[in-house]
Design a protein around this nucleic acid. Structure first.
Length: 885
DNA sequence: TGACTCACG
DNA sequence: ACGTACGTGAGTCAA
């Protein structure tokens, strides 16, 4: 700690910098926070680096300062503070209050003057100062005891100015800054200076004469050219200097000693950050606090209210049996597990309510690994979890199911999952971790490790369940939660555990074949390039194509030449190396991601891949899949499509059944928009793209060419994505004007769709969010961005999310019902994958009639829309050779 | 870790 | 004069 260092920040200057440096940031409720975030981030960073003993932040106050009295035009052309920034100042001051950092303001003075006054006083007491600002004017305050950190492009990069550095950079001493400004002026502050005198002349003059006053008193010595420039503007120059001079004697009552910094009020800070949804900052603070607590013999941070709960560590058989009793009496338990999928369950904590007891909520800890009673603890846990008469509340129930899986244990009656509930309340949140939810909703910091941490988690799950259940009710998402998302947790767990069988021999064969092809392509590419290089490196490839071979540059990326497929396709005819690179890329992708990547994830025990489905990741309500991602297995190009041959049924005599919704998103659109033309097309069972082509091109359905249909298909896609002429033009390779025409004639023929789009955006602006058919919600803070392109992005999202999200609602509802009926009927067919509009099953051939009927019935009737939902089914010995049935 | 590229719906 | 299609995850390079 630098006990005798004073850190002073220019609040106004830094807030402005942060506002312009941080692209856009807002809470889920639309509160704009970019400047607060940027400012806070920077503040925490400098404090951490500099460890100052004294801290203050200065702000401007009052529109009129003493400088305006000296010169009415001072800062006359300064643009008004943006509307998005102004309300962020009080928030910044709240952050400072929570940080225990004094805010200094004085009527009629600018932040600079307060800073000047503070550092002058500090110097008087031999205290070193560091000024952080984005304003060059402060450089005049640099001295042997005072340094300035100036923000450089953005806000987090700071450049340190000592006396030496000021001289190097500007060729003047810090004290000469006002003189310099007096000559050169400053357009941003509307300080006039002397017309015709630029930085170079000013520097030379100051080097020779030292000060502006000296220059003026000896103006006759100057060469005629300069003399005539300066003489008529003597008064203006002196006034300019006066305006640029920082006042160091502001009548501040505060003493430098009073700025001694006691450190932050962590509780207040965390509560504020959770209100502002600064997740990363919260995590950083929690981590820092964790470190402090771990320091042996160090001082635990007492002012932080880490959440502590009383709990009982159960060991004896009797006590454990008693827990089952208590759980039954309670009727519901919140359970937190610790451990990993590799190593198993290490411990569990159970929270339950004992009527009449005080406190009502009791928490129990069970060590499942301890030699004494570990086995018994696990059995007791298993009994409680399996008992359908006891409601289970968990955070991330699917992970818990996986942890229990190896012990042959499961959960019956999963009554609440806080992770999934929080996701519905704000699907765009960066994290749904329990610690973050506890902070956001319960305003407590969960402890990091140990028995008390697990106990606190169980307790928090109980409290969050009650809180989030009420929030779901208020948001009218109870049906979506209890009928779809919550039961889906178990469905997804079953799908993951079943896994997908893989033909490993076939996969290895493909790997060898690809290896040979890739090596041969690489050889040919090196030949044509005249050297060996890494074809995978876009930088090296760019060098070869655009520098060595001098091919025309079509497109640039932020950092260099673009070499993506669209560029290479355009260059295909220009040099024989280009098509080879395209083919190399394609095969390389297949080998590394799909062939070798997939092989690496085959579980040696089951011979299958067990993907993870993520239920709380996407902003729209879709699922995602990882490790491996089985939702992006190639299909569009034949070479890649062959990968699907390795996805096989898990048992002899089984088949792969696929069932996909036909045009589900356009059907959802037809239903939501109630457009007569679109409704009619689907009710008649027409080919939707052909019909659209006929409408847009004004021909009869029989006259539609392949090309017309292709364009119409792109228009239909575009509508769903929130269309733009630019995007459409790029996609189908026509002029922007032509794309514009297609869109116009589309909207002329489908006026209901146009009205739907306008209505959706309007409602989104009014409410701040959009909803799906089952009332799934997505907040759209982008709609309120001051940045036009961000705002338009928000508008496209407003269109796409209800459509994409409603399709997700529908297929999830179908999945829950299909899973339930397969189970009820005791069928051996297993649902193994979901790919957004498609379900894939591993099915005994003998169950075909029953299962196809069941699947179709649930998928087509998941929701009743104004148009029929149509499902296409395919059957085969693997995922490649499936034939329509 | 971010940028780039590319696979899917 | 901008800068754009919506939603994901994985592999690779290069700092």
């Amino acid at each position: 700690m630098q006990e005798n260092t004073l850190l002073v920040l220019d609040g106004n200057s830094l807030a402005h910098r942060a506002f312009h440096a941080i692209p856009h940031l807002a809470t889920s409720q639309g509160l704009v926070t970019n400047a607060v975030y940027g400012f806070t981030n920077m503040l925490l960073k400098v404090i951490k680096e500099l460890q100052p003993g004294l801290v203050a932040v200065c702000f401007d106050m009052g529109r009129v300062t003493f400088r305006h009295e000296q010169y009415g035009e001072y800062k006359a052309h300064r643009p008004a503070t943006p509307d998005e920034l102004r309300p962020q100042f009080p928030l910044i001051k709240e952050v400072l209050a929570a940080m225990n950092i004094p805010v200094l303001e004085c009527e009629g003075y600018e932040a600079d003057d307060l800073i000047g006054t503070l550092v002058s006083r500090a110097e008087g007491e031999k205290i070193a100062s560091i000024i952080v600002t984005g304003d060059q004017d402060s450089l005049q305050l640099v001295s042997p005891l005072t340094r300035v950190l100036l923000t450089r492009k953005g806000i987090s990069e700071l450049e340190e100015y000592t006396e030496g550095r000021v001289w190097e950079r500007f060729g003047i001493t810090p004290a000469q800054f006002p003189d310099y400004k007096g000559l050169v002026g400053d357009t941003s502050d509307n300080i006039p200076g002397v017309p015709g005198i630029g930085p170079k002349t000013a520097r030379t003059l100051l080097k020779e004469y030292g000060s502006l006053e000296e220059i003026i008193s000896r103006v006759d010595e100057l060469p005629a050219r300069l003399r005539d420039k300066i003489r008529p503007y003597r008064e203006q120059a002196l006034l300019s200097k006066q305006l640029a001079t920082i006042e160091r004697k502001v009548p501040l009552e505060i003493d430098v000693g009073a700025l001694r910094w006691p450190g932050p009020d962590y509780n207040r800070l965390l509560a504020l950050f959770s209100r502002l949804e600064f997740k990363t900052l919260i995590r950083a603070i929690r981590q820092e606090l964790g470190q402090h607590e771990d320091e042996a013999g160090g001082h635990p941070v007492r002012e932080v209210e880490t959440y502590r709960v009383n709990f009982r560590h159960l060991t004896g058989k009797e006590e454990l049996c008693r827990l089952v009793e208590l759980s039954r009496q309670s009727g519901r338990v919140a359970v937190a597990l610790s451990g990993t999928r590799r190593e198993g369950i290490a411990a569990a904590a159970v929270a339950l309510k004992s009527p009449g007891e005080s406190p009502e909520l009791s928490v129990f800890y069970l060590g499942t690994e301890s030699p004494a009673g570990g086995q018994a603890a696990l059995e007791i846990l298993g009994d409680i979890l399996a008992d359908p008469g006891i409601e289970k509340l968990l955070h991330d129930g699917k992970s818990a199911l996986w942890l229990l899986h190896r012990y042959g244990l499961t959960i019956n009656n999963l009554a609440f999952d806080t992770m999934v509930a929080a996701y519905l309340l704000n699907p765009a949140a960066a994290s749904q971790e329990l610690a973050d939810l506890a902070l956001e909703h319960l305003k407590v910091v969960l402890p990091g490790r140990g028995e008390e941490a697990l106990a606190a988690r169980a307790d928090a799950i109980w409290r969050l369940s009650e809180l989030l259940a009420e929030k779901l009710r208020l948001a009218e998402m109870e049906r979506l939660y209890y009928e779809v998302e919550l039961p889906l947790v178990t469905v997804l767990a079953d799908m993951e555990m079943t896994g997908v069988a893989i033909n490993r021999q076939h996969l290895e064969e493909m790997s060898r074949e690809l290896e040979v092809k890739i090596a041969s392509l690489a050889e040919q590419i090196y030949q044509l390039a005249g050297e060996q290089f890494n074809i995978n490196s876009t930088r090296q490839l760019g060098h070869i194509l655009f520098e060595k071979l001098e091919l025309p540059v079509i497109k640039k990326t932020k950092t260099s030449y673009s070499t993506d497929a669209s560029v290479l396709e355009e260059l295909s005819g220009a040099h024989p190396i280009v098509p080879l690179v395209l083919e190399y890329r394609q095969l390389m992708k297949l080998k590394s991601t799909y062939v070798d990547g997939l092989a690496a994830l085959i579980n040696p025990e089951t011979g299958r891949v067990h993907t993870t489905f993520h239920q709380t990741v996407t902003a729209t309500g879709r699922l995602s899949s990882s490790d491996p991602n089985l939702q992006n297995i190639p299909i569009r190009l034949e070479e890649g499509r062959k990968i699907r041959k390795v996805f096989i049924p898990g048992r002899e005599g089984n088949l792969i059944l696929t069932a996909d919704y036909s045009q589900i998103e356009l059907r959802v659109l037809a239903h939501m928009a109630k457009d007569p033309n679109l409704l009619d097309a689907f009710r008649r069972g027409e080919d939707i793209h052909t019909r659209t082509a006929a409408e847009v091109f004004g021909v009869s359905v029989t006259e539609v060419t392949t090309d017309m249909r292709g364009r119409a298909k792109a228009v239909n896609f575009g509508i769903v994505y929130g269309i733009s002429d630019f995007g459409l033009a790029r996609d189908i390779n026509v002029s922007r004007q032509e794309a514009r025409q297609y869109i116009e004639s589309y909207f002329a023929r489908y006026a209901g769709v146009k009205a739907f789009i306008e209505r959706t955006i309007r409602e989104a602006r009014e409410k701040g969010y959009v909803t799906t058919l089952l009332n799934r919600r997505r907040y759209l803070p982008d709609l309120f961005s001051p940045n036009r392109s961000v705002r338009m992005f928000g508008e496209r999202t407003a269109i796409n999310t209800p459509i994409q999200g409603s399709a997700a609602d529908i297929i999830k509802l179908a999945m829950v019902r299909i899973h339930r009926e397969l189970k009820e009927r005791g069928l051996a067919t297993r649902m193994i994958l979901q790919v957004h509009d498609e379900l894939i099953f591993d099915m005994p051939a003998g169950e075909m009639a029953e299962v196809t009927e069941l699947v179709r019935r649930h998928m087509e009737n998941a929701l009743v829309l104004d148009v029929p939902l149509v499902v296409d089914m395919k059957l085969g010995p693997n995922w490649y050779e499936v034939k329509k049935i």
